[in-house]
Amino acid sequence: MTNSIIEVKDFRKVYGDFVAVDGISFDVKQGEIFGLLGPNGAGKTTILESLEGIRTPDGGTLRVGDVDPTHEPRKLRNMIGVQLQSAGLPESITAEEAMKLFCAYHDTAPRFDLLERLGLAEKRKAQFYELSTGQQRRLTLALAIAHDPQVLFLDEPTAGLDVATRVELHALMRELQANGTTIIMATHDMAEAEEMSDRVAILLNHKLATVGTPMEITATGAGLTKVSVHTKNGCLTNPTAKIPAVQQRKAKGEYTIMYSTDIGQTVTAVIAHIKTQNDTLIDLRVERPSLEDRFLEITDYKHGSQGGA
């Protein structure tokens, strides 16, 4: 994944006096899953809609493949697939009719196999309003990928879905990626972004706060690593046991829980202390900060900085 299939440079979008996106730049590599994260109003949907050719930039440039979304909508439409938060389908249209309509628009044969793949074979004749929320989301995804797009845009793809349907959708996303599809998704679900994304961009106050792999982002900042230790004799429960780099410490049942700024120092000292106290280690768990932890840290810091200005 060395070639960029999406490029956003100094992108700006305003609505009257409201600045929705202010000078954002990032790229998406071919074949990766790229997550757009941010609170409501940060500009995620505006970015997606502009890349989809729905909105016109007020500054900067956008590129999808070799296409300018603003000036080449006909060339763009067969390159991309779009699953919106709201499907916009007529309530009375059936799943089969929707598939025929979308495939005719893209000049391709109807992909009824996708309805079967997504568990909608028995719902081909059902009208859209008769489908459950999960079934509606699966149908809109089937419509978005029926023409084998190079780039797939997903806006809150698993919002309102049950666990089983989320697992199915994630599996299909991985399958599409394995076949070369680039996926860019906007989501509020930090766990989903951390699990599914190769890289993420965090937006805040209409600007780009950071971009990188989930591992890179969670490895930076002041996030504390949680260390949970259970020993046979509970030697770490003694408040006089000094362990370096620990900022917070508490007991929970048989476990001593420490929050460390330097996991190497802390774990090394914990093991040494257990040995000098002739105690026996039963369980030791290390949990690094999650993407959600880092997201909250970034947003709290930014809001705090602005609040003091």
Rank of each mutant, 00 (worst) to 15 (best):
Q306W: 10
M173H: 08
L236R: 05
P39W: 09
V19F: 05
A178C: 09
I298N: 00
E130S: 09
I145D: 07
K125C: 01
M1K: 07
D262L: 07
P39I: 11
L131N: 03
G60W: 11
H147A: 08
A104P: 01
V28Q: 05
T210L: 00
R124L: 12
D293P: 04
G53C: 12
T45N: 03
S86G: 02
I217M: 03
N40C: 08
L114D: 10
I184V: 15
G212A: 01
R166W: 07
T158D: 10
L101C: 03
P289T: 04
V82L: 14
E194C: 05
T213Q: 07
D148Q: 14
T266H: 04
C235V: 13
K100I: 13
I5N: 05
T45I: 04
P239M: 12
Q127N: 12
I80A: 02
T61Q: 13
D113I: 06
Q177H: 04
G65V: 02
I217L: 10
I54N: 01
S228L: 09
E195P: 04
Q127C: 12
I47Q: 07
E72D: 13
E49P: 08
V19E: 08
L296R: 14
V211H: 00
L51V: 09
L37M: 06
G253S: 14
I33M: 08
L208K: 12
V200E: 00
M173K: 10
R138D: 08
L101N: 03
L131W: 09
L48W: 04
E97D: 14
H273D: 12
V64K: 01
I274H: 02
K302T: 06
L281S: 08
T56V: 15
P149Q: 12
E292W: 01
R117W: 06
P239T: 14
E130Q: 15
P39L: 13
A20R: 01
S4V: 05
V270S: 08
G59E: 10
V270H: 07
S260V: 07
A245M: 13
S260E: 04
K44F: 02
F153S: 11
T61E: 14
S260W: 03
E168D: 13
E72R: 14
A109C: 03
K75E: 15
K13S: 08
M173W: 03
M258D: 02
Y301S: 09
A98T: 02
H230P: 00
K75D: 12
R63I: 05
R12S: 15
K123F: 09
D66L: 06
L37S: 00
L172A: 10
G223W: 01
V163P: 11
H303G: 03
Y15V: 08
A126K: 05
V211Y: 00
T280A: 09
A191C: 07
A87S: 15
I202E: 00
D148V: 09
D198F: 02
T276M: 13
D162V: 10
G38H: 02
E96M: 08
V14T: 14
A272Q: 15
F26Q: 02
G160V: 09
N233V: 07
T266W: 02
F18P: 03
E32H: 06
K44G: 06
D22M: 06
S92N: 15
H273G: 05
L172Y: 14
T210Q: 00
M196P: 09
D22K: 09
L204Y: 05
M215A: 14
S305C: 06
K29R: 15
A87W: 12
